[in-house]
Design a protein around this nucleic acid. Structure first.
Ligand SMILES: Nc1nc2c(ncn2[C@H]2C[C@H](O)[C@@H](COP(=O)(O)OP(=O)(O)OP(=O)(O)O)O2)c(=O)[nH]1
Ligand SMILES: [Mg+2]
Ligand SMILES: [Mg+2]
Ligand SMILES: [Zn+2]
Length: 567
DNA sequence: GCCGTTTTCGGCCCGACTGTTTTCAGTCG
């Protein structure tokens, strides 16, 4: 069993125990246990083999025993007993907005509702409204939610969600009374998928006109919640947007609250409480005082807790607070550190802009260099280059470089890794060019061993500088190809081959976790945009944010150097 | 159920909004 499976069982136990009405803190222990396993860098089973998994924070004697017996017998007795006592269909009911453990328990006890189909039947025949504590509105809402859930495609990839969020933000920015506005939540933290959009507004005036402007935006389909400090709406594209409004002097504390994560808050607030302080979205308060000791900025908030500042990308409730306590929060790589981009396409293949246009756009981003990496001929849909065309492009770039001052174009290629792991280009040209990215664009369904051997063969070729989009996953699309990424990383480390964090909107590949793992195994990391236009260069920002989530610093990233140095 | 530079027992984040609750539980952020 893999970590995901172990975590899923614990999560299901926590949900079923919630419905049964068990102690909140025991339930949280299962939730925490599930999260702890999800966050592990190594397989739980190898940690079991090596020793004591109660070393893992959040796993104690009881969970360890349960997990070990789960491994041995293939089932968890706690889980099984809950499924028998209750019903596996109840797990789906928790996905319905407005239904929590208490109402689900009531519906199960009173009406025998144990799955979504039965819930729908009961709602349609009006039985829900008759249940004590529920009513007509709840019944209608349940029906609408069941409908919506069937249509919804779940969490949205970060780039798409961020574009929508910035669109709403930019419209609200123009509204009278809006003195400050920021996108918060999982978008600000850079999670690779987004559940909903969270926007914070500061005003010293009346919030209601601003809420009114929000809910009357053309993209708003339905108002879900409308209060004095917060309003939620669903957009026509299905995305939920939560808007929270506070006073300007509370903006920092509120931004911190609205940025999350929830788990970060629970840890931070517990710590504050032990110091005699209370944190809420309005500030940090001494116990029994209404006068905040911090509220204006996030920096103030961490400072008054005797903590180093924790950047949003690290606020996931892992070990960031411990690091901040010891002043060991890494100085994360920043946009201004990025001096070049090493993966992009031009009109020579499937890009929309010329080399010179890409150069101009790169200069506008304050880069000192770029690498042009058009496709090789096996990628026919992109009009990949033959050796002749590639040779001509190398010459062309050499000429352009003569004319450039304070800027360098590296000639390069995104060479296709063919089915057998060989490279789709003349080897002499690969040796002649400055920068070789190698990636897989075909035969995604090879068996794991074959795929791993294929990629490693390319890594070992001595001709490759960087492995492109190593997993091949498409966000909100196909999974990565089946390959042993750990073996690939080790091969990269041994042969001095870098791995990219490809920031192009569909990819984020490597993702933050894998980038961290690669770095820890000694692999050099490159941030790239994989731009197919001048605009596309901006996608490097997504790669940057994933690098930050991975805890990487300027020194960990190759293209923060003033020039390409290939050892 | 987990955990410990105030604890091996006694804590465990904190607040907004909705509805059928006539005084606040449930759900969500
Ligand atoms: N203190 C506290 N804050 C919370 C809690 N739940 C949510 N928040 C805060 C932190 C979250 O980042 C922020 C926005 O909530 P969301 O439900 O939108 O979560 P988030 O944006 O982190 O993830 P998402 O991608 O939307 O699922 O509100 C909670 O239980 N306690
Ligand atoms: Mg959110
Ligand atoms: Mg939200
Ligand atoms: Zn590619």
């Amino acid at each position: 069993m893999d970590n995901k499976e172990y975590a899923r069982i614990l999560k299901e136990i926590s949900i079923l125990r919630q419905i049964r009405g068990d102690n909140h803190f025991k339930i949280r222990a299962y939730e925490n246990g599930a999260r702890a396993i999800e966050n592990l860098a190594d397989p739980l089973e190898s940690l079991m083999d090596e020793g004591d998994i109660t070393q893992i924070e959040g796993i104690g004697k009881s969970l360890a025993k349960e997990l070990e017996s789960l491994r041995e017998t293939g089932v968890s007795s706690v889980h099984q007993e809950l499924l028998v006592e209750l019903d596996p269909g109840l797990l789906d009911l928790m996905k319905i907005q407005g239904l929590g453990p208490k109402r689900i328990k009531t519906l199960y006890d009173e009406l025998g509702i144990s799955n979504v189909d039965l819930l729908k039947e009961a709602a349609e025949s009006g039985k829900i409204a008759d249940v004590e504590g529920l009513g007509k509105k709840t019944q209608e809402k349940i029906l609408a939610e069941i409908e919506r859930l069937a249509q919804s495609s779940g969490r949205m990839p970060l780039p798409a969600a961020r574009a929508i969020a910035y669109g709403v933000r930019d419209k609200l920015k123009e509204v009278k009374g809006v003195e400050a506005i920021d996108v918060a939540g999982s978008i600000r933290r850079g999670r690779e998928t987004i559940g909903d959009i969270d926007i914070l507004v500061a005003t010293s005036g009346e919030p209601q006109p601003i809420f009114e402007a929000f809910v009357t935006l053309p993209e708003v389909e339905e108002v879900l919640v409308r209060g004095d400090t917060k309003t939620s709406a669903r957009l026509r594209n299905g995305m939920q947007v939560d808007v929270r409004i506070v006073r300007p002097e509370q903006f920092g504390a509120a931004l911190h609250y609205f940025t999350g994560s929830k788990e970060h808050h629970v840890k931070l607030r517990t710590r504050a409480k032990k110091m005699g302080l209370k944190i809420n979205e309005y500030g940090v308060f001494p116990r029994d005082s209404d006068t905040p000791v911090a509220s204006k900025t996030e920096e103030d908030l961490y400072a008054c807790l005797d903590l180093q500042f924790i950047p949003p990308e690290l606020r996931e409730g892992r070990d960031e607070i411990d690091l901040a306590e010891e002043s060991k929060v890494p100085k994360l790589v920043e946009a201004s550190d990025m001096l070049g981009d090493l993966h992009m396409h031009t009109t020579e293949t499937d890009g929309r802009n010329t080399i010179l246009e890409m150069v101009e756009a790169a200069k506008a981003r304050n880069y000192r260099y770029i690498a042009i990496t058009d496709h090789s001929q096996a990628v026919t849909v992109a009009g990949g280059m033959t050796p002749n065309r590639f040779e001509a492009q190398i010459a062309q770039i050499r000429e352009i470089n003569q004319e450039l001052e304070d800027f360098r174009i590296y000639s390069g290629i995104e060479v296709d890794i063919l089915k057998d792991g060989s490279l789709d280009m003349d080897h002499d040209l690969l040796r002649e060019t400055d920068w070789v990215v190698a990636s897989v664009h075909s035969h995604f369904n090879l068996p794991k061993e074959e795929m791993t051997a294929r990629v490693i063969r390319a890594v070992e070729s001595g001709l490759v500088h960087c492995l492109g989009h190593a997993t091949g996953r498409i966000l909100g699309g196909r999974d990565g190809y089946d390959l042993d990424i750990g073996q690939v990383m080790d091969a990269c480390a041994v042969h001095g081959v870098a791995m990219e964090i490809n920031g192009s909107t569909g990819r984020l590949d490597l993702n933050a976790d894998l980038a961290r793992m690669a770095h820890d195994r000694g692999v050099k990391i490159v941030l790239t945009s994989d731009a197919h236009s001048t605009r596309g260069l901006e996608d490097l920002d997504y790669a940057l944010q994933q690098a930050r989530r991975a805890g990487l610093t300027k020194a960990d990233i190759m293209n923060t150097a003033p020039e390409l140095s290939l050892g």
